[in-house]
C-alpha cells in the first residue's frame, strides 16, 4: 500500500451537503470540520473528550469530534451547529430556547450544548429531568453556571414534547 499514513480523500455529508476533502489518518474530525471544511462553529476545548465543545451528530448520534478521526467518518452523515437552523433560515427551537433563557454568555461552548440537547430531544422529545442532566453533563460551560442552560433545555423539551 502506498503511504498508508498519508492523505486520502474523505467523502461525507455535512448538514445535507456532500463534502470531499483530503485528510491524513491522524486528522481529527474536529480539525477536519473546522479547517478543511471551514465549519468553524464546532469548537475545540480540550481535545481529550471531556469538555464536549466539539460535539457533533454523526449518523444521528452525539459524538465528541476530537475523539474521532476524519477517516472514520467516511460515508457518514454529520450535523453540526451550522445545520441547526430551520429550512427557512430561522433559528431552530433549541437555539431559540438558549437565546430566550439567556443560556449562553461567551458562546464558545454553546454549539456543543445545542448539539447534545438536539440529539436527546430527537430521540426522546419528552425527556425527563434526569435525562436532560445526563445529556448535558458531558458538556462543560465556564460562564453560565448551567442554571440557564438547564432552563433552556426544559423549555426546549416542553416544546418538543408538545410537537411530538
Amino acid at each position: 500500500m502506498a503511504d498508508p499514513g498519508g492523505e486520502r480523500e474523505v467523502r461525507l455529508v455535512v448538514n445535507g451537503v456532500e463534502r470531499v476533502a483530503a485528510a491524513e489518518p491522524r486528522l481529527l474530525l474536529s480539525d477536519f470540520l473546522r479547517h478543511r471544511l471551514g465549519l468553524t462553529g464546532t469548537h475545540v476545548g480540550c481535545e481529550h473528550g471531556v469538555c464536549g465543545a466539539c460535539t457533533v451528530l454523526l449518523d444521528g448520534e452525539p459524538v465528541r469530534s476530537c475523539l474521532v478521526f476524519a477517516v472514520q467518518a467516511e460515508g457518514a452523515e454529520l450535523r453540526t451547529v451550522e445545520g441547526l437552523a430551520g429550512e427557512d433560515g430561522e433559528l431552530g427551537p433549541v437555539q431559540r430556547a438558549f437565546h430566550e433563557a439567556h443560556g449562553m454568555q461567551c458562546g464558545f461552548c454553546t454549539p456543543g450544548f445545542l448539539i447534545s440537547l438536539t440529539a436527546l430531544l430527537e430521540e426522546r422529545p419528552g425527556a425527563s429531568e434526569e435525562e436532560l442532566v445526563d445529556a448535558l453533563s458531558g458538556n462543560l460551560c465556564r460562564c453560565t453556571g448551567y442554571a440557564n442552560i438547564l432552563a433552556a433545555a426544559r423549555a426546549a423539551r416542553d416544546q418538543a414534547a408538545e410537537r411530538a
Binding site: L58, R64, D134, A135
Partner: peptide, 12 residues
C-alpha cells in the same frame, strides 16, 4: 452502563 461517561461517549 448508564454510569459509563456521557451520551457522547456511549454513542462511540
Amino acid at each position: 452502563v448508564t454510569h459509563v461517561g456521557h451520551p457522547q461517549v456511549r454513542s462511540r
